[in-house]
Nucleic acid binder design. Structure first.
Length: 449
RNA sequence: CGGGGCGUAGCGCAGCCUGGUAGCGCAUCUGGUUUGGGACCAGAGGGUCGCAAGUUCGAAUCUUGCCGCCCCGACCA
């Protein structure tokens, strides 16, 4: 993509309303534009990141055996009356009436709808288990939206729902999502830790929040270093196999957000050298809620004995749009964003320091074509801006690699390659540079699978 | 929802107290000089001063109502 054709409105100054770094950078780097309190338009650069993150979430859901579908954003109040939540949900729910004065709502979540869908299509215990998910925009009329997309009112969420015949089977579904989440966040270059969460009306140990560690995270977290250092399950993991050891290994170690933190317990369970007090952002929540919806909504299947049994259910959310902010919180510096390759809006920023110079133009054109052919996504700065401005701009938007092409280097047959994350700069000959970049990008992308 | 604050050009802000033809920096456009880390000179364009009523000869400025946004708190993916 040529920068001269792209839409990238950058801000030199930080808008005063942005309080946290991800919000500031998303506005400055032209990722989003606020359209109302907690409501954002995704500009082209931000949209590309959002789609990359969404795709990783999707791939890991599919790998775990979940099946994608799509439910509407607008729901009927009637459905929510069945579960009793229409009254219970409160003002967070955006209620709408249509032209016939029918009560509608913009979905804050989809438990009722998926239950309604599945109860007609699943009749026997032989039809189970089922894991269904969708990635859809939600609306929660938060009292106080803030921090940009980190706590917007409209947000993109992946929510999976599990349906099982009994508790033991439900635990298997739960474990699949638990493991899928470990992989999902790791692929985005994030360190995550599952932490015990409110177990809700059912009780038990099947509720975890997934917290991403970031220096500027919204809440304090305390955990065992060994939890963070644990290797992420590989892409060859068998989701139909026994995942319980992987889950147990992690849930046995201390991890708590500051609301649930117990200093005494922490010190008792974790050796001093292994104690991590850090900051984090909640990006996922997995939750088993048993028959909370299946009973009132009569979602039952015939068991082996012919008797109807209410479905055992769980739901598993990932804040997709929030993750864009979380990645920035975890990967930035004074200069701007530092995207991990797997979610970067483009892999490479190709800077032509002197458009109009025949050699520079020719070299850039050949890089651009070589990258395109190799599947390396490139943003080609072909504008007439001054070098300093181009460098600052490319640092701000934070593409993982920069290829800097100018007459001065070309005189010696070299271009400069900069790694945005490490800041390392190196020279490469005109002949080798494309190959070097393609190799690094390919390797990096492979690594994040 | 309680408390506080703010709406003036794309962004950051001054002007308001004490009413009198709307300003500054950055950005944008034109010309010139520059050209490897956010240049310089000269000129130019761009604003229903959030909206509406009121007071007044005259309102960005005073009054009232409404709308929007931000911060702190309680709440949340």
């Amino acid at each position: 993509m040529r920068l001269s054709r792209f839409y990238l409105p950058l801000l030199r100054e930080t808008p005063s309303e942005a309080q946290i770094v991800s919000h500031q950078l998303m506005l400055r780097a032209g990722l989003i534009r606020q359209e109302g309190a907690g409501i954002y338009a995704w500009l082209p650069l931000g949209f590309r990141v959002l789609k990359k993150i969404e795709q990783i979430v999707r791939e890991e859901q599919n790998r775990a055996g979940a099946v994608e579908m799509l439910m509407p954003t607008i729901q009927q109040a009637e459905l929510w009356r069945e579960s009793g939540r229409y009254e219970a949900y409160g003002k967070e729910m955006l209620r709408i009436t249509d032209r016939h004065d029918r009560e509608m709502l913009f979905g804050p979540t989809n438990e009722e709808m998926i239950t309604e869908i599945v109860r007609t299509g699943v009749r026997s215990y032989k039809d189970l288990p089922k894991l269904l998910y969708h990635i859809q925009w939600k609306f929660r009329d938060e009292i106080r939206p803030r921090f940009g997309v980190m706590r917007g009112r409209e947000f993109l969420m992946k929510d999976t729902y599990s349906f099982d015949i009994d508790k033991a089977a439900a635990r298997k579904s739960y474990n699949k999502m638990f493991v899928a989440y470990l992989r999902t966040f790791a692929r985005m270059g994030l360190q995550s830790a599952p932490m015990r969460a409110e177990s809700g009306p059912i009780g038990g140990d099947m509720s975890h929040e997934f917290i991403v560690l970031a220096e500027t995270g919204e809440s304090g977290v305390f955990c065992d270093r060994r939890l963070v250092d644990m290797p992420v399950p590989g892409s060859d993991i068998d989701f139909e196999g026994d995942l319980q050891p992987i889950v147990d290994q992690r849930t046995s170690l201390y991890a708590a957000t500051d609301e649930k933190h117990d200093a005494a317990e922490f010190e008792e369970q974790v050796a001093e050298g292994d104690r991590i007090a850090a900051r984090g952002i909640e990006v996922g929540h997995i939750f088993n809620f048993g028959t909370k919806y299946s009973e009132p909504m009569n979602a039952v299947v015939a068991g082996p004995d012919g008797k109807n049994i209410p479905l055992e259910m769980g739901s598993y959310g990932v804040g997709v749009s929030r993750l864009v902010g979380a990645v920035i919180e975890a990967h930035h510096d004074e200069g701007g964003c530092r995207w991990p390759l797997s979610v970067a809006p483009f892999h490479v920023g190709l800077i032509n320091l002197k458009p109009g110079d025949a050699d520079a133009d020719a070299a850039c054109q050949s890089f651009y074509q070589a990258f395109g052919k190799a599947g390396v996504e490139t943003l080609y700065d072909d504008t007439n801006a001054r070098p300093g401005e181009k460098f600052a701009r490319m640092d701000l938007i934070g593409l993982p690699f920069q290829v800097i092409v100018g007459p001065r280097g070309l005189k010696n047959g070299v271009v400069e390659i900069k790694n945005r994350a490490t800041g390392d700069k190196s020279e490469a000959s005109l002949g080798d540079a494309a190959e070097v970049i393609v190799a690094q990008v390919t390797k990096g992308l492979q690594h994040s699978l």
